[in-house]
Design a protein around this nucleic acid. Sequence first.
DNA 1: CGTTTGATTGAGATCTGTCAAATGTAGTGG
DNA 2: CCACTACATTTGACAGATCTCAATCAAACG
Lengths: 219, 219
Amino acid sequence: MQVETSLLNAQRPVLPIPPTSARRSAPSRAIAKDAEIFAEGDDAESFYRVVSGVVRTYKTLSDGRRQIDAFHLPGDFFGLESGDEHRFTAEAVGDVTVTAYRRCALEALAMQDTELAKQATAAMMRALERAQDHMLLLGRKCAVEKVASFLLGLAERMSRSGDIELPMSRIDVADHLGLTIETVSRSLTHLERAGVIALPAHRRSIQLRNRAALARLNS
Amino acid sequence: MQVETSLLNAQRPVLPIPPTSARRSAPSRAIAKDAEIFAEGDDAESFYRVVSGVVRTYKTLSDGRRQIDAFHLPGDFFGLESGDEHRFTAEAVGDVTVTAYRRCALEALAMQDTELAKQATAAMMRALERAQDHMLLLGRKCAVEKVASFLLGLAERMSRSGDIELPMSRIDVADHLGLTIETVSRSLTHLERAGVIALPAHRRSIQLRNRAALARLNS
DNA sequence: CGTTTGATTGAGATCTGTCAAATGTAGTGG
DNA sequence: CCACTACATTTGACAGATCTCAATCAAACG
């Protein structure tokens, strides 16, 4: 896990860091793999920004079915709420470092024209756009298309080469795409047999061999 | 219907809009059933608020598969974008009246502390929250659960009694829930046979007979 | 090494989609 | 008011995609 995390960070472009006025009151927090950052229903005292590692946010049904609405990479904000409770749970996918911002700070800052307020608003809009794209994926794409879209999106966000080091397990991928782990696995081998991707021995790494074919799958 | 549509498209070029200082005189636009308000890729010159009727916003894949991300009821905002293009298409479900706001107006107002800016921001947050709930529905609920959740949500938004008059066709419902019209129909009759809802002769009206049972279906 | 965990593969069941037909409703014109 | 049409919805039979359950395999770890 350590290895994967550092690889990921190495591939990421350097983060833009909020201005010092905001950073002064922004403590950095280290979180261990699979540890909870906040839970559905918790008071939304703070929101967060990923410094290193990956965070998943999800909702669950009463019988345990889970939908991961997003993975948050370094630089991404998460945990912004309109109400006073968190509406989903956030956990560390691997070892993670986050910056915490007091929520009241945002509301105070929102009135002003600060860099942090702008970034937070922009983050919300991006989250909405991603959610809209993801609804199309969940509602109308078949399994292979879902996996292809996911790989393309991840490559775009975390790698400029064609190599992806998946930060998350198959279960996480499945719960993000509305599939089971078996179907995710079968879709991957299907793409591999079609020569679109390669799956090296280390099963968390994936090479994109034919981006055009992948792109065709989520037109 | 064709005639009406083309008439509307003819008047689609943006109306002259008075300065934002006169918000009370924000122009009202009448739109005929199934006419387009804006399309994916259009310049996002304006955003809108529903005055009367219902609006659907959707994305499509290249082969025509469609995902309706939301239905907008009177009072709802839609068409707010972070970029300079609309990222989905908006159409009138029935006959509709909307208020149009110039986009630059919002950006100017965002700096200030106006009521409209606040409402627009709140609308965005609500849209995000709905999108997150809807991802759980699309990714992890079965057909009957999807229909039950949809009916409950609609009843909550547009009726305090247990009677719903569906504003949209089965096709629209299906494309919102990630199903086919046949499966929507079968789910409805299934709920009817279970005594949870009643389906009067007029097939667009639905009576909720057992809200507790419906609520149990989307826990 | 054995164990544990995660991932892949296989076989069969189930749910939803597809195609086709029947039914019902609204609308039209005689 | 009654055919008659057009359209939306429902229903049925079947196919196909994904899920479930189970076994195998591989890598990581003590």
